[in-house]
């Protein structure tokens, strides 16, 4: 276990080397947020106007929470790094050493998540303070704990999905096509574009069983206290299912990939 704590430590140090890179990244993650504010400002042109149960205040809260969730839970370059390590044969050193590659990457993922969260926290607090008239955030400790759990599970899920996509590098020279496809679906069906419950009810009900829903929309519902206890329970069960699913799938792809990489029977 201690070796993986050390991986976490070295990952943190390595992120600090690229301080300008991640500072800019954190700052510019607010651009889509500003875009969303302007867009939705135009939609809700007169105060008090509501659309599918949302008004200006709840929309701003939604998108603000979304950027925060993004920095807590979304992998930045992990998939391309993993694919690169496979393509360039750098995974050799993990096969030679007594270390588990998945756990190793998982620790590196958390180290970059920790720093991104710390850095985006400052502007988020500022924006939240400025828009305090609108923003609705969890009030009780329980709510924070539940939202934290959902965000943690979302991070595990997103890492699991990125890991599975990245491992396609065992077969493909370039993984940017599958990565981009997954990213586009995530963007639409995860709730990046608009809150998913604005969709027609049957569609919304169907989407609730897909993993994308649990990457963003579900944790946001918990955070914004919009999920009933029953919805929350059901949501956590499905979210945990998807996390386990992608972790197990990741192991299977890794084994299959390794069979090809080491040319078993080839």
């Amino acid at each position: 276990m201690r070796k993986y704590l050390h991986v976490l430590n070295i990952g943190l140090q390595n992120t600090f080397v690229y301080r300008w890179n991640f500072l800019l990244r954190c700052l510019f993650s607010f651009v889509p947020f500003l875009g969303a504010i302007y867009l939705w400002g135009a939609v809700f042109n007169d105060p008090g106007k509501k659309l599918a149960g949302y008004d200006m205040a709840s929309t701003i809260s939604y998108f603000l929470a979304l950027i925060f969730l993004d920095s807590v839970a979304s992998p930045t370059e992990d998939d391309f790094q993993i694919a690169g390590e496979i393509r360039d044969g750098l995974i050799n050193q993990f096969l030679l050493k007594p270390v588990n590659y998945f756990t190793y990457r998982f620790c590196l993922f958390w180290s970059s998540r920790m720093i991104y969260t710390a850095v985006t926290l400052i502007p988020i607090v500022c924006v939240a303070y400025l828009s305090r008239k609108y923003a609705v955030f969890p009030l009780t400790l329980d709510q924070w704990a539940l939202a934290g759990t959902a965000a943690f599970l979302s991070a595990c899920l997103q890492f699991g999905m990125a890991y599975c996509t990245a491992l396609l590098a065992f077969w493909l020279l370039d993984i940017s096509a599958p990565t981009f496809i997954v990213f586009s679906i995530e963007f639409a069906l995860g709730g990046h574009l608009f809150p998913l419950d604005m969709m027609p009810a049957p569609l919304y009900q169907a989407i609730r069983f897909l993993p994308f829903y649990y990457e963003y929309f579900f944790p946001l519902q918990v955070f914004l206290a919009k999920a009933s206890p029953q919805e929350m329970l059901q949501g956590f069960v499905v979210q945990i299912f998807w996390v386990i699913f992608f972790f197990v799938l990741g192991q299977a792809i890794w084994r299959a990939g390794l069979r090809k990489y080491t040319a078993v029977g080839g």
């Binding site: 201690r2 050390h6 070295i10 050193q93 050493k97």
Partner: peptide, 21 residues
């Protein structure tokens, strides 16, 4: 092939190996 952490001093990679082994 390079197995050391490119952006960190080699000493850090050595420490990581200490933990791994």
């Amino acid at each position: 092939k390079n197995q050391l952490w490119w952006d960190l001093p080699a000493h850090e990679s050595f420490e990581l190996n200490r933990e791994i082994y």
